[in-house]
Design a protein around this nucleic acid. Structure first.
Lengths: 182, 182
DNA sequence: ATATTTGTAGAGTGATTAGTCAATCAAATA
DNA sequence: TATTTGATTGACTAATCACTCTACAAATAT
């Protein structure tokens, strides 16, 4: 087993349960089954651990999102796939998703690049293309991106507590979401 | 000067800048111009201080929102007023608004009533009335509430960094928002 | 005027914490 | 087989923290 990964796993569990500073490094090490010193062998400071965990989760999410995205599909179809994939990933990786939000809403966010909030990549491009074609509403692409992220968060946090009719909710939510951005 | 209020003010400033646990009570007391012991005279524990600050801000927001809300106005008008008032309050009280988000996305949220997320009151009722009249989309009112909150957050976080065209952005955003929930 | 409560101070305490370090251990390489 | 390299340990440290306690001052009640 990779001890670095085990440390990240334990950190994720403990950080989401107790928060960053209420989780001592000693507890993380213990939970991961390694010694105190080993933690600091892999992560020079606690802060680095917190940041690396964020980067790693963000990477996982982005890799997942870019998998099997249709090319040359109608814009609406592409957005639908992104939308649903995001929410389903969040539901299947709740700790990871919650960690992202906890991190983003904490002062640690000032330590990462500003243009880097959670989802990156070609989304800006996609939005601007949609606007050129007149399909998407004419609002700053940054705002549209924020609207998208936050709609995903809203649907996720609802479905987290109510997993009945998931498919129907997703369907209807997307329909409304599409109206929001067109 | 009310020392309890001064302590809450200092706590707000420091918590939003450094986070809960990276802000020692001693710093809060010093910043408020009182002694260590005085802080614990007003707040038995640090946790109580964190919770009371949250409650106080939530109350402020709710009081503000309920001021000069039109009665018997068309639903769309009522929502528009709520929508704009929320965002403008957030922009004018950024620390308070950021604190709410930091709190809600932290493990401390488990210590407050679940039915109590930030905005309370008659909003559920309003939504259900709108649905009965067939004006609002037929989705669970909890989900609609989440969509509303998160749209407000999205527009706020965009406008926080771009305060040009505020009026126009608000106008257009509401137009899209209304499509989202109808 | 006296007694009682309430507010305020700040030094002190015991516990906890991030991070260090010298000593082993394992495994790869020479 | 010898040597180097990196991984791992856990006791240790210096700092920090939430909170206590005693003393005193101010306000309020009797």
């Amino acid at each position: 087993m990779d001890k670095e990964q085990q440390l990240l796993d334990s950190a994720l569990n403990l950080f989401t349960e107790f928060g960053f500073h209420a989780t001592p490094t000693s507890k993380i090490a213990k939970d991961a089954g390694v010694s105190n010193g080993t933690l600091f062998h892999y992560f020079p400071t606690k802060e680095v651990l917190i940041l690396k965990l964020y980067e790693e989760i963000k990477k996982q999410l982005n890799v997942h999102l870019e998998k099997s995205i249709p090319v040359d599909a109608p814009l609406k179809q592409t957005f639908k796939v992104y939308f649903k994939k995001s929410i389903i990933w969040a539901l299947e990786n709740q700790k990871e998703f919650d960690y992202i939000q906890q991190f983003i809403n904490s002062p640690f966010i000032t330590m990462v690049d500003i243009s880097d909030t959670a989802v990156t990549g070609n989304h800006h491009k996609l939005i601007e293309q949609g606007q050129e074609k007149g399909e998407l509403v004419n609002l700053p692409s940054q705002l549209i991106l924020a609207l998208i992220s936050n709609t995903v968060i809203a649907v996720y946090s609802f479905l987290k507590g109510n997993n009945q009719n998931q498919k129907e909710i997703l369907q209807k939510s997307f329909k409304q979401f599409w109206k929001l951005i067109t």
